[in-house]
Design a protein around this nucleic acid. Sequence first.
DNA 1: AAAAACAATAAACCATGGTTCATTGTTTGC
DNA 2: GCAAACAATGAACCATGGTTTATTGTTTTT
Lengths: 113, 113
Amino acid sequence: MRIGELAERAGVSRATIRFYERNGLINSVPGESATNNYRDYPEDNLFKLEFFTKARDAGVSIADLRDIMEALAGSCDPADARDVVRAKVDELKARADQIRRVVEFLEQALDGG
Amino acid sequence: MRIGELAERAGVSRATIRFYERNGLINSVPGESATNNYRDYPEDNLFKLEFFTKARDAGVSIADLRDIMEALAGSCDPADARDVVRAKVDELKARADQIRRVVEFLEQALDGG
DNA sequence: AAAAACAATAAACCATGGTTCATTGTTTGC
DNA sequence: GCAAACAATGAACCATGGTTTATTGTTTTT
């Protein structure tokens, strides 16, 4: 599909898609038309973008997403891939814990105030 | 205490303290010396900075921290204050949920891969 | 066929959250 | 009393994560 359709279906802007592509998060192939150089974005980018949006919301950086996608794509040793992803998972869990502590503090402040 | 001591005890840089102060997160008073214009940072800033560090780590923005501190300082209606803080708590809980979902996805990817 | 919408590319721009630098003045340790 | 460390101020700088703005060319709509 073309970038506009992908953008609309994924709920992100075309500019964001291009930005992600520049940063290696998604990929496109040359379109089949000979008269233009429009790119074709395979269906799986839709799924990826949905994940990226959630993950970005959860505080995962672009760099981390790139690492994760590269690892999951199995470009290298699967054991290495697991390590990369597991490390990110641990970071995320730590972050969730941190949030829990902050929430706890704020709720105590509410009760105490 | 002076900025250097606060910085060291709170584990942040002096520049960060000045940045936070510019942004209304902490406050200082003029020092007692007549020969300089060094500021004095009351003890409670130490506690605040520890909270800010945790909260920033959890993804709370400077603007949110300012709102929260203003609300907790009880500058206005206590009911309003509760609302502000409760709203932030809800946001943080949503963020934690989001992280949980991302972690779940990544763990499934690990199991599936 | 002409206007409106879409696409590619590059560059500039923006907010956030700091950090670094330069300058000037103060205080402290030796 | 003199260098080293500390403080205040302001401005510049940096990374991150996008968004906006040309510019040029293509396609679709009417």
